[in-house]
Each structure stands twice: as C-alpha cells, then as structure tokens.
Simulated scan of single mutants.
Amino acid sequence: MNPLTAALGNLSALSTFVIAVACAVHVVFFILLWIWFRRDLKKIAASLDEFTRGLKHRSLFDGTSHLSDQIEAFLADVDEVLQDPNGDADRRMLIARINVLDERRRYLHSMAFETSYNICRTMIEAYPLAGVLGTILAIGAALQSGGDANTVGAIVSRFGDAIWSTFAGLSAGILLMFLNSVLETRFERLAENREHVRDTIVRAKRELSLVPEEPA
C-alpha cells in the first residue's frame, strides 16, 4: 500500500469521528449563544424597567411575560411620555434617569453577537459537504489500490466508511438546522429590540433637550 492510499484511508476512517466532534462543538457554541442572548436580553429589560419606574402610565408584567415583550412595552411607555405635551412630571423623571439608557452600553452593540451567530448558522451547510468529502476520500483510497479486482474489493471494503461519513454529515446538518430554526427567531428579535432601544434613546435625548439637534 502506497503512502497516498494509506493517507486517504486514514482520513476517510476519521471523517465520521471528526464530523461528530465538530457537531458536538457546534451544539455547545449554540448553547453559548443562547446564554449570551439571555444575558443581554435581561440587561436591556432591567435597564428599561429602571428607566420607566414611577411613570404614571407604566406597563406592568407578571413573571411569565417574555423579556422581549417587556422591552417593547417599556419602549412604548417612553414613546407615550415623549408624545404627551402635558407630561412634564414624567419628562423630568426621564431626564433624571436618561443615563440609564446609554446607547454606548456594550449589550446594545450587536455586531459581535450577530457575527458569531452568522458564522454558527452558515457553517451548518458544511456538514453534508464534509460527509460527501469523507465518501470521496474512501473511494479515492480504494482507487489508489491499483488493479481492477483489487479496486472493486477495496471499494467494497471501504463502503462502510463511505456510508457512515455521509450519514454523519447529513444527520449533523439536520440536527443543527432544527436547532437553528428554534433559536433564529429569538436571536432576530433581540436584534430588533436593540435597534428599537437605540432609536428610542436618541429620540429621548433629542426631545428632552439633552442632545442638541445638528444644524441642517
């Protein structure tokens, strides 16, 4: 057996194991993204809760309310104060607490989270390709054995590696696609919440005269 045949054979034999390990790491990465998502969502909701506490018409929630719904309701409370020309008391309260909603807070910057999630989501497509690559390596190792009779026998002997590699790649892709479908809507909702909070901060500072408008 020449070195190339041995190398291809070893790679094809390891392909299933490598795909399984990569899938496990991918799942762990999704779990870390979920923890990151929950942490930022809680921080945003807590900041808005502190910012709107004491307003005359403030939304109230029980412990079962989703944090994204709480964030949107708190922002609606702020919008209501900004639109009410007679809400001087509430406006003074918001002025005193405006530093709570500082758009420079790290949890309002979504680039790192969105980049990490985009990488995690895009790499799902690599698993079926990795499975096919393992199959090609197994067939390539068989073809390198030389001789028609030997080639047929080698292909048959390596058929198991080829099938398991393809199976592992497809299974990992299906599993991760399902996991991504569960998390994608939540992660997109967080991005929308962040954007809405940033817009509300800018508007609140402008309308509360804390940030002068730029000349046209």
Score class of each variant (00 low, 15 high):
residue 167 F to L: 15
residue 10 N to Y: 07
residue 36 W to N: 13
residue 150 N to H: 07
residue 142 A to L: 08
residue 216 A to N: 09
residue 195 E to V: 10
residue 183 L to K: 11
residue 169 G to I: 00
residue 101 L to S: 06
residue 121 R to C: 02
residue 2 N to F: 09
residue 175 L to R: 00
residue 183 L to G: 09
residue 151 T to D: 06
residue 95 I to K: 11
residue 162 A to Q: 06
residue 94 L to F: 01
residue 190 L to P: 01
residue 16 T to M: 08
residue 106 R to N: 12
residue 209 S to F: 13
residue 117 Y to H: 06
residue 177 M to S: 10
residue 170 L to K: 04
residue 144 Q to T: 09
residue 212 P to T: 11
residue 141 A to K: 00
residue 128 P to V: 00
residue 43 K to D: 07
residue 142 A to Y: 05
residue 125 E to M: 14
residue 118 N to R: 05
residue 39 R to D: 15
residue 211 V to A: 04
residue 28 V to F: 10
residue 18 V to A: 11
residue 200 T to H: 01
residue 50 E to P: 00
residue 111 M to Y: 15
residue 145 S to M: 04
residue 193 N to G: 03
residue 105 R to T: 07
residue 88 D to I: 06
residue 72 E to I: 08
residue 143 L to Q: 08
residue 65 S to L: 08
residue 191 A to K: 12
residue 188 E to W: 12
residue 9 G to K: 05
residue 149 A to C: 03
residue 202 V to N: 02
residue 139 I to Y: 02
residue 196 H to T: 14
residue 170 L to I: 12
residue 48 L to N: 02
residue 34 W to V: 07
residue 54 G to W: 04
residue 160 G to A: 12
residue 64 T to N: 13
residue 31 I to M: 12
residue 188 E to V: 11
residue 106 R to V: 14
residue 123 M to T: 12
residue 64 T to H: 12
residue 192 E to P: 01
residue 54 G to E: 03
residue 194 R to D: 07
residue 10 N to S: 13
residue 142 A to S: 15
residue 13 A to Y: 10
residue 139 I to E: 04
residue 200 T to N: 04
residue 181 S to L: 13
residue 194 R to M: 14
residue 191 A to C: 05
residue 19 I to W: 00
residue 47 S to A: 12
residue 90 D to K: 15
residue 57 H to W: 15
residue 99 N to F: 06
residue 180 N to E: 15
residue 152 V to R: 07
residue 43 K to Q: 09
residue 130 A to Q: 00
residue 213 E to F: 09
residue 10 N to I: 04
residue 49 D to N: 11
residue 183 L to S: 10
residue 141 A to L: 04
residue 175 L to C: 06
residue 216 A to H: 09
residue 175 L to E: 00
residue 8 L to R: 06
residue 185 T to H: 08
residue 138 A to M: 00
residue 129 L to Y: 03
residue 79 D to W: 06
residue 15 S to T: 08
residue 168 A to C: 06
residue 96 A to G: 03
residue 192 E to R: 11
residue 81 V to L: 05
residue 5 T to E: 15
residue 102 D to Y: 06
residue 141 A to G: 14
residue 88 D to Y: 14
